[in-house]
Design a binder for these strands. Structure first.
Length: 588
RNA sequence: GCCCCCGUAGCUCAGUGGAUAGAGCAACCGCCUCCUAAGCGGUAGGCCACAGGUUCGAUUCCUGUCGGGGGCGCCA
């Protein structure tokens, strides 16, 4: 329907590429370094550092090459002025009328000017993956929130995404649970909080087994019966899964998380003997002390796996999660033919995934198949710890995810009640829910995923400064202004946009950069880049809002222009917040 | 022992092979008769752990040292 809108960086990079060709250096086979926003306003809007790259092969000075590029730079409406500065920077000062027109084109585009570079490609994203029969705690938060944001980033850039929740629904804990269920079930407690009761039963079992080791044997027997298809155990197991999924869904609905598939570990169970047999037959795996292992050589290309062993079948014949991961990989590849698979887990699983990937690649090669048919990516995040140390069900210091959300909403509610007492009870409750949950999501997303996190309530639940509520407030201000001015967003004449003040110019430039930032955040699996940018953009909006009059602007033209800028801001912020999973409210 | 991450303002953290390293919080000084003060402006705060190297340019890349976290055959 509409032609795609290039990013500003793309327009300028193309221009530099043309200058390279016009200067007769098109044969350098050197990809043109993308033009980047200038670090300092005095250095223009964007800068091209490509002359530095070209200088060496040309045996010339960067400065001289930059001068040459400048001389051959084709005229373009975007560029008001270009100059060479310092040792060889090509500084580009952009034309504000062009910037405005480009911003209007961007925000009018169905994709918000977001290049759809993933069009036609599929990516599977594996995230959240909680264990059945346990309530989700804050340890599940990072995978869920970061994963769902990667999901949104990929979709925003045109990919077809298969979000797959690989839940932990298989394993020896079910035997324990079945034993405990039959002995100690508190029916009333189960009625009130089903998964909470399952969790209590599990902990009770572990406690009791310390005193009475015979319980372990009973549990093993029940696990074996379950795996052999015993109808009673199987029915119980299915019930555990069903109630757990209901519980998870409650959290997912609040967090704005949804999956395309929920294929738990048990789904792959039937395939596991075949995987092991195949790997043995292919010579990838071998028997060792009664177990089956994949052994990696001391000079393996992947340094991390050197001299390491991946066990895929235990001495007792049971399979491990590495086995399941291999079967899962095969299934995903044959079912969805993805260009990539992204696993979002804790950083402590780095070695595990390196081993699984290496084993799978060797297996592919042994079958005469392309090991590079799919890009495997383990996107890991830093460990979440409590100020006092580690957290665990058995340590008894877990913070449940629902409790975190409830506390966030409670704090948000106190602020809403104070700031907006005129709103109805229902509306204040809805705002508090959105603000609280948004704050939690943003707190996790706004730092580098790979940093370790020490969980602190006040930081996680902050409502001022660089937080989701700040973005939400900025957006709500746009809408408030439109209501007061009695303009419907869809009626705003965007073409009236012009820059008459440097605060407007700064805002326009930031709004225009958003698609570049979304692309970078997706490519680097770094949602925090988008958080930073939206925060900066919202700050620029608030400065504009504070300093300049919109509805009371001196002239009709100025008012029209500023209303256009407000609408453009609302669209960009709203779109960006949607990618982060932070709700955009009409008022707060 | 080997492998992976981290060390940036008082605190919590961003950041990039580019020009003068940023934000939030905390501290201090200001701004609501005016479109939402969940906001805006200002002051103060730094050997980017340390030492070498790579180059036009290193906080960023490489090597080493020190300090912290994590992982390393039958848990996930």
């Amino acid at each position: 329907m509409s032609s795609p809108v290039p990013t500003v960086s793309q327009v300028l990079t193309d221009l530099v590429a043309q200058a390279v060709a016009a200067a007769g250096h098109g044969d350098l086979a050197l990809p043109v370094e993308p033009a980047s926003p200038a670090g300092n306003r005095q250095h223009g809007d964007y800068q091209s550092n490509h002359a530095f790259r070209m200088a060496k092969p040309l045996r010339s000075s960067p400065r001289a090459v930059a001068e040459q590029l400048l001389a051959h730079l084709p005229p373009h409406p975007a560029v008001a002025r270009a100059e060479v500065a310092g040792p060889g920077f090509l500084n580009l000062h952009l034309d504000e009328a062009w910037l405005c027109a480009h911003l209007v084109a961007q925000v009018s585009d169905p994709h918000g000017g977001q290049p759809q570079d993933g069009a036609g490609r599929t990516v599977v994203i594996d995230y959240s993956s909680p264990n059945v029969a346990k309530r989700m705690h804050i340890g599940h938060m990072r995978s869920t929130i970061i994963g769902s944001t990667l999901d949104r980033l990929y979709r925003a850039t045109g990919y077809r995404v298969v979000a797959d929740n690989h839940i932990g629904d298989w394993g020896t804990q079910f035997g324990m649970l079945i034993v405990a269920w039959r002995r100690w079930l508190d029916a009333a407690a189960f009625e009130a909080d089903p998964v909470g009761e399952l969790e209590r039963l599990y902990v009770a079992f572990r406690e009791a087994a310390k005193e009475d080791p015979a319980l372990e044997d009973l549990a093993r027997a029940e696990t074996a019966k379950l795996q052999a298809g015993d109808p009673e155990n199987r029915a119980l197991w299915q019930r555990f899964i069903a109630i757990s999924l209901v519980e998870f869904q409650g959290v997912y609905d609040r967090l704005g998380v949804r999956f395309d598939e929920v294929l738990g570990e048990s789904f792959y169970n039937p395939a596991l003997p075949g995987v092991v047999a195949d790997l043995l037959a292919a010579g990838i795996a071998e028997e060792s002390d009664g177990a089956v292992v994949v052994r990696f050589s001391a000079d393996h290309a992947v340094k991390a796996v050197r001299d390491k062993i991946l066990v895929i079948r235990k001495q007792d014949g049971a399979f491990l999660y590495g086995t399941t991961d291999l079967a899962t990989l095969e299934h995903r590849l044959s079912t969805w033919a993805p260009a990539g698979i992204v696993y979002v887990t804790d950083g402590r699983q780095q070695l595990h995934f390196q081993q699984v990937f290496a084993a799978w690649r060797a297996w592919r090669t042994a079958r005469g198949l392309d090991p590079d048919a799919v890009a495997l990516d383990h996107t890991w995040f830093g460990t979440l710890r409590l100020p006092e140390g580690h957290m665990g069900t058995r340590l008894g210091n877990v913070i449940r995810l629902v409790d975190l959300l409830d506390e966030a909403v409670r704090r948000a509610r106190a602020v809403v009640d104070e700031k907006s007492p005129q709103l109805s009870e229902t509306e204040r409750a809805a705002i508090a829910e959105a603000v609280g949950v948004g704050a939690v999501r943003y707190a996790d997303l706004s730092q580098n995923p790979q940093s370790d996190v020490v969980f602190e309530w006040d930081r996680m639940l902050a409502l001022d400064g660089n937080t989701a509520p700040f973005l939400m407030y900025s957006y709500a201000r746009c809408r408030s202004l439109q209501r007061k001015g009695e303009v419907r967003p869809e009626d705003v004449d965007l073409s009236a946009l012009a820059v008459s003040h440097e605060l407007e110019g700064a805002l326009v430039r930031l709004l225009l950069r958003t698609p570049e930032v979304v692309a970078a955040a997706r490519a680097g699996h770094r949602p925090n880049l988008l958080c930073d940018h939206l925060f900066e953009t919202a700050q620029a909006f608030n400065r504009f809002y504070f300093e300049l009059d919109v509805l009371k602007a001196e002239t009709a033209a100025l008012k029209a222009s500023r209303l256009a800028l407000v609408e453009a801001s609302a669209r960009v912020l709203g779109r960006g917040m949607a990618v982060l999973g932070v709700p955009a409210l009409e008022r707060m």
